[in-house]
């Protein structure tokens, strides 16, 4: 009975109602997070509060575009978080590059480097859209489908090869000297 409590339906029901965000403003979308936490929209009634240390947080919110210099630090932070952990991609820049699709410094598809559970589209998403995404993440957790952290361990070689391709190829167009 202890085994079924730890990994089973009751534990997942509790996990979905207590998701702590990590406090990391990675891009321009971070300006719509403080208004969601004030009393007009109030994220805390769903059990979501910001947390300063990655060792005690559950959800990593990638708010917007990622430059390559930030991607290194995001991966270090993601690997410091403890299981189970979830990633939410916030904004159009994580889906296909957004309006910086032809820039030499920002990545285009977040899914190549980190496993993503839920995407929010928009530029910039309003606080109502943030709520919809967190409720969808809660449904996924209750059904047992939010398995990004397990996929990261199973396919680790593929993720590491993609990350190294971006970190090592700095500025040299292939085929030129």
């Amino acid at each position: 009975m202890l085994e079924s409590f730890r990994g089973g339906k009751v534990a997942r029901w509790f996990k979905g109602r207590s998701m702590w965000l990590l406090h990391f403003c990675t891009g321009c979308g971070a300006i719509e997070l403080p208004p969601s936490m004030t009393s007009r929209y109030d994220l805390e009634r769903f059990g979501i509060i910001p947390m300063a240390s990655p060792r005690q947080a559950d959800v990593l919110l990638i708010t917007g575009y990622l430059s390559v210099k930030t991607l290194k630090r995001v991966i270090t932070t993601y690997e410091q978080m403890l299981d189970p952990k979830y990633v939410i991609g916030f904004g159009s820049c994580t889906i296909n590059g957004g309006m910086y699709w032809d820039s030499y410094a920002t990545i285009n598809k977040l899914d190549y480097y980190l496993p993503v559970d839920v995407y929010i589209s928009g530029c910039m998403p309003a606080p109502d859209a943030i709520f919809a995404a967190f409720l969808e993440l809660r449904e996924k957790i209750e059904k047992g489908e939010a398995n990004g952290y397990k996929l990261y361990k199973i396919h680790y070689e593929r993720y590491k090869a993609n990350q190294d391709k971006v970190f090592k190829n700095r500025g040299i167009i292939e085929g030129e000297d």
Binding site: G27, Y65, S67, K69, T70, R73, Y100, D102, S103, Y104, A105, T106
Partner: peptide, 14 residues
């Protein structure tokens, strides 16, 4: 600095 670099001046020329 440099964590939020997008290369805006290059984007605006294109």
């Amino acid at each position: 600095p440099g964590f939020l670099h997008r290369g805006f001046e290059k984007l605006m020329e294109m």
